[in-house]
C-alpha cells in the first residue's frame, strides 16, 4: 500500500516535470505556425487552424540566414575540432608524464576553470583588437581593428579554456600503467604511445567533450556580441535578437527562427544524448 503510494507520487511528479519543461516548447512550435491574428487573439490559440509553414520561409528571408548558419557552423566546428586535439594531448601529458613543475602547471589549469569569463573579457577584447599586422594594424597593434570582426576573433578565446584538459586528464588517469610499460618495451615514445594506444581508446571522453564544446560554442551569445558588429559575421544567436529589436515583434517568425536555431542542438542531442549526460556528470565527480 505504502509502496504503491510512493510509486504514484513519483509518476505524478514525473508527469508534472515533463509538462513544466515541454509546454513552453510546445507553445514555441505552435506559435511558429500561427498567423499574427491568431498570435494576437485575446484567448490563447493552442493549435493553429491552418499551419502557416511559410512563417519559416519568411523568417529565414528576414536577413541573410544562410550566412548566419554558415558562420555559426564554421566557428563551432573549428573550435570543437581544435579543442579536441589540443585538450586531449595536454590531458595525456598531465595524466602520464611527470616533469618538474607539472603540478604547478596543472594547478594553473584548475584556476583557469574557476575564473569567470567576465574577468578576462575586457583584456581579451583589447588584446585581439590590438593584434599586430592584422586588420589594418601596424606592428604596435595600432591604427586598425585587429581581429575585431573576424572569424579568428570569434574562435581563439574558446581554444584557451581548460575544462577539456581536466576532463581528458581524469579519463586517462584511469588507464592501467601497464599500457605505458608495454609501449616502452616496444620502443614507443610518449607521443607514439598517445597516438597508438591512448587515442584509439579515447572515444567516450572525446565524444563527451565534443558534444559539450559543440553546444557551448553554438549557444554562445556574449562573445560574438562584443567581438563583431558586422552582418557578415553574425552568428545565429545574435541574428535571433534582431527580431527582438524591431518595432513590432513578429512573434510567429521569431518562434520559427528560435526553433530552427535550436534544432542543431536537438539533432546533436538526439544522437549523442548519452555522451552529453556523461560529460555533465564527469564534471561533477571529484577525483
Amino acid at each position: 500500500m505504502k509502496e504503491r503510494l510512493i510509486r504514484l507520487t513519483a509518476i505524478v511528479f514525473a508527469v508534472l516535470c515533463v509538462g513544466f519543461v515541454l509546454f513552453p516548447f510546445f507553445l514555441m512550435l505552435s506559435i511558429s505556425l500561427q498567423t499574427m491574428s491568431e498570435v494576437y487573439a485575446p484567448s490563447p490559440v493552442l493549435i493553429p487552424k491552418v499551419p502557416q509553414f511559410e512563417n519559416y520561409v519568411k523568417a529565414m528571408q528576414n536577413g541573410n540566414w544562410a550566412r548566419y548558419f554558415l558562420n555559426s557552423a564554421l566557428v563551432t566546428v573549428v573550435v570543437t575540432a581544435i579543442s579536441l586535439v589540443i585538450n586531449s594531448m595536454a590531458g595525456y601529458v598531465f595524466a602520464r608524464l611527470k616533469f618538474r613543475g607539472s603540478r604547478v602547471l596543472f594547478l594553473l589549469v584548475l584556476t583557469g576553470m574557476m575564473i569567470p569569463p567576465q574577468v578576462t573579457m575586457i583584456p581579451l577584447f583589447s588584446l585581439l583588437r590590438g593584434m599586430p599586422f592584422v586588420g589594418g594594424n601596424n606592428w604596435l597593434g595600432q591604427g586598425g581593428i585587429g581581429l575585431y570582426n573576424s572569424y579568428a576573433g570569434l574562435i581563439i578565446p574558446f581554444l584557451a579554456g581548460s575544462f577539456g584538459v581536466f576532463l581528458c586528464r581524469q579519463f586517462y588517469i584511469g588507464f592501467p600503467k601497464e599500457l605505458d610499460d608495454a609501449a616502452r618495451m616496444d620502443g614507443c615514445g610518449p607521443f607514439d604511445a598517445f597516438l597508438k594506444i591512448y587515442l584509439p581508446l579515447s572515444g567516450p571522453v572525446l565524444a563527451s567533450l565534443g558534444v559539450l564544446k559543440f553546444t557551448g560554442t553554438w549557444n554562445e551569445y556574449t562573445w560574438p556580441l562584443i567581438m563583431t558588429n558586422s552582418d557578415k559575421l553574425k552568428t545565429v544567436q545574435l541574428a535571433l535578437t534582431v527580431f527582438r529589436n524591431e518595432s513590432e515583434i513578429l512573434w510567429n517568425q521569431l518562434m520559427a527562427a528560435t526553433f530552427l536555431v535550436s534544432l542543431a542542438i536537438y539533432i546533436v542531442f538526439i544522437f549523442a544524448q548519452k555522451h552529453f549526460v556523461a560529460g555533465l556528470l564527469s564534471g561533477s565527480v571529484k577525483g
Binding site: C17, V18, V21, L22, P24, F25, L27, M28, T215, W218, N219, E220, Y221, Q237, L240, T241, F243, R244, L254, M255, T258, V261, S262, I265, Y266, F269, Q273, F276, V277, L280
Partner: peptide
Amino acid sequence: MIIPYATSMVAVSMI
C-alpha cells in the same frame, strides 16, 4: 528535463 539546459539562453529568453 535536460532539454532547456541544452537550449541556448537566447532561445530560452525569446520563448
